[in-house]
């Protein structure tokens, strides 16, 4: 079975029932019910209860459902984890991760809560949100801190604060950090997820930003508005030519395996392990796009 796609991860405020109910309609690959920045301090408890109720009662279809929890050093961290585990989200995205210890701490707490809830230990995955200079520097060790870790996301707003800079449309201030997160995540075999693009009305700017993210090696992008989802999928969708070639590579590879032949070539180009892996990824993404209900995805 192919690995789940995480091209689009839609943030939904954890205190907004209407948006939570509607989120799966837009068919993001992942939904992130947010208990952190979207929720004010005096609404944390209510939002947590609402998210638990939503996890238990709503049908999110084929979407991966995660919850962004408050950072390890906040007073909400433990309650977030303890309350959410019995409702069994697919994953928790931990905000403001700066060290491997943050992930280890969450991993251990999750293990205890899973046992108490009668769930298999390791059932709930972790996504690490890298949002500070310290987090970027420690990204390689963070990415290896737990077998639960499935993705590492980058958050530009807090990051630019931490390096005492400002976000620009060109984004040079983010280049090193974005690349560092991609390298660490890819080296660990987990998905790197790019930062949000806050100008929800700027489709052109958003599309350009997604193209850069794809080129840098990100597996997907965090989204703050449903309209961004189709645009992300559009950029990440392989072209028909790419899909055609990938299918021929896989067919040639399968035939070679069956016939026990050695080195093979397609269109005069040698096909080896990385080429086959890349071809499989292209076909997986294309198949996933076919299943999308968005008309642009057809």
């Amino acid at each position: 079975m192919s690995k789940p796609l995480r091209r689009s991860m839609l943030f939904v405020p954890g205190n907004n029932p209407a948006l939570i109910v509607d989120a799966p309609v837009f068919l993001p690959d992942s939904i992130i019910l947010d208990l952190e920045d979207a929720v004010t301090v005096n609404q944390k408890d209510a939002a947590r209860e609402l998210v638990v109720h939503a996890l238990r009662t709503l049908d999110f279809g084929s979407c991966e459902v995660c919850v962004r929890i408050n950072g390890r050093h906040t007073p909400f961290f433990t309650d977030d984890v303890r309350t959410l585990v019995p409702a069994r989200p697919h994953a928790l995205r931990l905000a403001m991760v700066e060290s491997a210890e943050d992930i280890v701490c969450l991993d251990e707490l999750l293990g205890r809560c899973e046992s108490e809830a009668g769930l298999p230990v390791g059932a709930i995955k972790i996504m690490a949100a890298i949002e500070t200079a310290k987090g970027v520097v420690n990204a390689p060790s963070i990415s290896l801190a737990s077998p639960r870790l499935v993705a590492m996301s980058f958050g530009a707003e807090d990051f630019t604060n931490s390096i005492q800079s400002e976000r620009t449309p060109q984004g040079q201030e983010l280049l090193f950090a974005r690349t560092a997160v991609v390298l660490a995540a890819r080296a660990a075999g987990i998905d790197p997820i790019d930062t949000v693009f806050s100008l929800v009305d700027d489709d052109t700017g958003f599309r350009a930003d997604v193209r850069v993210a794809k080129q840098l090696g990100f597996a997907g992008k965090s989204c703050v508005h449903p309209r961004q989802i189709a645009l992300v999928h559009d950029v990440f969708r392989p072209t028909p030519e790419e899909v055609h070639r990938a299918e021929r590579v896989l067919a040639a590879y399968t035939k070679a395996l069956q016939q026990g032949t050695g080195v093979i070539a397609v269109d005069g180009r040698m096909v080896d392990g990385p080429i086959v892996t890349k071809a499989q990824r292209i076909v997986d993404i294309a198949n996933s796009s076919k299943n999308s209900q968005n008309w642009r995805a057809q």
Binding site: D22, F26, P226, R227, A230, N294, W295, R296, Q298
Partner: peptide, 18 residues
């Protein structure tokens, strides 16, 4: 409309028309 839900419905309707 900029309502994403309405736009989504409209996009689906266009698929049906096509």
């Amino acid at each position: 409309t900029r309502d994403p839900l309405e736009l989504h419905i409209a996009a689906q309707a266009m698929r049906v028309i096509e």
